[in-house]
Simulated assay, not measured.
Amino acid sequence: MNLAEKVYRQLKEDIFDFRMLPGDRFSESEVAERMQASRTPVREALYRLERDGYVQVYFRNGWQVRPFDFRYFEELYDVRIVLECEVVRRLCMESDRAERLAGLVTIWCCKPSQRQVDPVDVAFLDEEFHFGLLECGQNKQMEAIHKDVCERLRIVRRLDFYEPGRIQATYEEHSSILDAILSADSSRATRELTRHIELSRNTVRDITVHRIQEARQRYSTDLSRK
């Protein structure tokens, strides 16, 4: 991995882990000092992040983590619903769907005492659940588009698991979706999947600056325990 790639990944992780918040301003020299890198790979990483929609440049005035664009997030959720529901419909018609879904069933259709309770861990598992559904669909192009969409939504989706009751509800919703697919009930599976994603979308509509600051503090505490 070259230095520009390393800086790119670290900065993106800083954004996802709330160490850099939407609206935060910074300079190339600040990043270079923190990363112990020259400004050339830092600039290369920043322009790549700009192309990916994570930061924006102010010529002669440094850089800024892109503020939340709620319409943008709403549109990404629409894409998620279309992709995931189509994959679920196809899975309901596959004779080997139980075999394909076995790994997800083990994680999500478990006893309450076996469930994860840490928001950081559950956020990761939730993302892997949705990636897993697309992987079971066995369409590499749909899988790649879906992964890109989910990555762009990652910061707002992580906020979801600090809401009271959302961890327990996520286990129940995922389990119910899997049960519907295994029963070949396409209508119920897509209905419950859509509702599940819509509940996550509602998190975006309730985001405030205070809530993001609070999430940064709590998320940093949770990460430090690991």
Rank of each mutant, 00 (worst) to 15 (best):
M1D: 15
L3I: 11
E5T: 15
E5M: 07
V7Y: 12
Q10Y: 02
I15F: 11
L21M: 13
R25E: 08
F26P: 01
E30L: 11
E30R: 08
V31S: 06
A32E: 07
R34S: 07
R34G: 04
A37W: 00
A37Q: 14
R39D: 03
R39E: 09
P41H: 12
R43C: 03
A45T: 13
Y47Q: 04
R48M: 11
R48T: 08
L49Q: 04
D52H: 03
G53A: 05
G53R: 05
Y54E: 08
V55T: 08
Y58D: 07
Y58K: 13
F59H: 15
N61F: 09
G62F: 08
W63S: 08
Q64D: 04
Q64Y: 05
P67D: 02
D69I: 01
E74I: 03
L76N: 02
Y77P: 09
I81K: 14
I81E: 13
V82R: 11
L83G: 11
L83F: 05
L83H: 06
E84G: 03
E84H: 02
C85V: 00
E86F: 00
V88T: 03
E99T: 09
A102G: 03
A102P: 06
A102V: 06
G103M: 01
L104H: 12
V105T: 09
T106W: 11
W108I: 05
C109P: 04
C109Q: 14
P112D: 13
S113G: 04
S113Q: 07
R115D: 09
P119T: 04
V120R: 12
D121E: 13
V122G: 07
L125G: 13
E128K: 12
F129E: 01
H130R: 10
F131E: 08
G132I: 02
G132M: 06
Q138E: 14
N139D: 15
K140E: 15
M142H: 10
E143T: 05
A144Q: 14
I145S: 07
K147M: 09
V149Q: 05
C150N: 09
R152T: 03
R152M: 05
R152L: 01
L153I: 07
V156C: 06
R157S: 01
R157A: 05
R158E: 04
L159V: 12
D160Y: 15
D160N: 10
D160C: 13
F161C: 11
I167L: 07
A169M: 14
I177M: 04
D179I: 05
S183K: 13
S187A: 09
S187F: 06
S187D: 06
R188L: 15
R191P: 00
E192T: 04
T194H: 09
H196A: 15
H196G: 12
S200F: 02
N202F: 06
V204T: 14
I207W: 03
H210C: 14
R211F: 10
Q213P: 10
Q213Y: 10
E214F: 10
R216M: 09
R216E: 01
Q217T: 12
L223E: 12
S224Y: 00
K226E: 01
